[in-house]
Design a protein around this nucleic acid. Structure first.
Lengths: 327, 327
DNA sequence: TTGAAAGCGCTAACAA
DNA sequence: TTGTTAGCGCTTTCAA
């Protein structure tokens, strides 16, 4: 396969130069002649020399690892979001020769993250989710470890990467109003997550009074079923769902009650994934790109580890998908 | 918080001993007096000294990292399985002071894993899934890197951790036969995954001739819908599903066709997760413990990194959950 | 039972 | 432009 285990000394000797020169050729730091540089690169390539990242790390106090932190208990919906983010995170990290250490936290227990950071096993941290009172953010601010969050927070001095949920939800809701809906019900989930509050508030702004009901913290089918009953009692003409997991259950409930979409009631979702993909009718929804979110998070974090200036908040776009469910 | 950055020299000086002694007190290697040992431990505790794992790694050629490898494109079902495994993997690793580097592979592209291994960023690898012709297994065998797989493979000399899918599927199917079912249809997915072949074969053995139809590679609703049509055409009295994702879609199809479970047809699933949790009627299924799988995988892998002997195959148990859907 | 010193494989002043 | 040398913070022989 490869004569793994050759070290910088070996290539230096083989080429009759010093290891400093080899090191410089590879890192591009300091000036060296293009000729020697090429010589080194060629040798390294043909002999498949791989600098030992541990030794490199010790010398330059770096680990070439980034931490990816996700909640231990995620529902399916969050899981698929994190998975797609993670795809972008890994891809962008690998391009920069970084690897991803994954760890989980509970809302009130972040021992693992603390250990990871205090052990200096990573050069930076990405928080996959932000909570309303986030102990991870608190801890990371104090620790001095560079970090970014995916999502938003009101805590100051935190680097955020987020979709413009607020504008997106406002826009989609406003479109529904323009289409003539006057009694729109909103069904949302866990109100300790920042993004859920943001979506709800976007809805409220967009609805501009044309709102029949708002129900948060609907975490299982029972809650959602009751919320739908309530929406119907309130004579709603449309139900807007916080995400596709909720939407799926709303649709199931409506089907059970033989209430047709969009004839009897319209339905829209503030999030869209494979869950809703093949629904009949197709569901009006908001579309984001979690993979991009992950990539951008890594790019920004890496800048921070280099002490570069980065914007406090980076906003990525969205798409409003108008489908038959609100026709 | 903690005066992070004290190093072994600092504690040695503070205690008036050599750093060798400190090192030995912490690692437990070599003999030292219990008195000094306690002194060191106490100092370390109160001053929150954390040995630098990078330096430790360089000196002992270890990284204190394990790789967790999952396919880049997983359906929801696999995702939740991996997530639960990962919980066990992280938990067991952390207990041994290891961290988890996560990486993804595609069926025909494992560049990332190769890089991770050749860069010596990990001390061992856990493959979350086994394919029929698995390039990762091939590569890892050649590389000399310790590794274990979750699942089974026919490749020799590979350390496997798996549930006894074969016995479980056989047993559940046999129970159905005993209950009087004579025309059992089987609907399965991707036949390039070892586990899916195992389940199908377990079904065949358990059915002992009472099988009306077998349909593999049903990957979306359309496939499954056709398979159900086919099962009904064949006058089946029961449908056995390879996993809960398939089962969910089978149930949706049956509901659409107004075919009642269990009155008109029985339904069982070879896998059970939250997807099926609240179904009405409850679904007869097989229950495993993915978290345990992850934990055991780490324990065994760590033994391998210490050059200890480990069993080639470790089999974990299962439960047969008999519910109303086959009554 | 303890310590001195070499070394893990690299980077980066400082010199040349 | 290149090389010498001293670390990075630990572990581990070897000697005391």
């Amino acid at each position: 396969m490869s004569d793994n285990n050759i070290k910088i000394d070996d290539v230096a000797k083989a080429l009759g130069i010093s290891k400093t020169t080899v090191s410089r050729s590879l890192s591009g730091k300091g000036r060296i002649s293009e000729a020697t540089r090429q010589k080194v690169l060629e040798y390294v390539e043909t002999h498949n020399y791989r600098p030992n990242p541990i030794a490199k790390g010790l010398a330059s106090s770096k680990t070439y690892n980034l931490a990816w932190v996700v909640p231990a208990n995620s529902d399916m919906n969050a899981l698929s979001f994190f998975q797609r983010c993670l795809g972008g995170v890994i891809s962008a990290s690998n391009e920069a020769d970084y690897d991803i250490i994954i760890t989980t936290t509970h809302a009130y227990d972040n021992k693992r993250l603390i250990k990871l950071v205090e052990n200096r096993k990573v050069d930076g941290v990405i928080l996959g989710q932000t909570l309303v009172n986030d102990i991870n953010i608190e801890f990371l601010k104090k620790s001095g470890m560079p970090f970014v969050v995916i999502g938003s927070t009101s805590v100051s001095g935190v680097t955020m990467i987020d979709n413009d949920h607020s504008a997106a939800c406002r826009e989609l809701t406003a479109v529904l109003v323009m289409k003539g809906m006057k009694r729109i019900a909103y069904i949302g989930g866990d109100s300790t997550k920042v993004v859920n509050i943001t979506r709800r508030d976007g809805f409220i702004t967009g609805a501009a009074g044309n709102c029949s009901m708002i129900q948060m913290d609907c975490n299982d089918y029972k809650d959602i079923s009751l919320a739908v009953d309530n929406a119907i009692d309130k004579n709603s003409d449309c139900i807007v769902c916080e995400d596709d997991r909720i939407c799926q259950q709303v649709l199931a409930k409506l089907e059970k009650e033989m209430i047709q979409v969009p004839e009897k009631i319209k339905v829209a979702s503030f999030y869209n994934s494979t869950l809703l993909e093949n629904n009949k009718p197709p569901i009006t929804s908001l579309q984001y790109d979690p993979r991009e979110l992950g990539k951008v998070a890594v790019d920004i974090l890496l800048k921070k580890t280099d002490n570069a200036e980065v914007p406090e908040k980076t906003i990525l776009g969205y798409e409003v998908l108008l489908k038959a469910s609100t026709q």
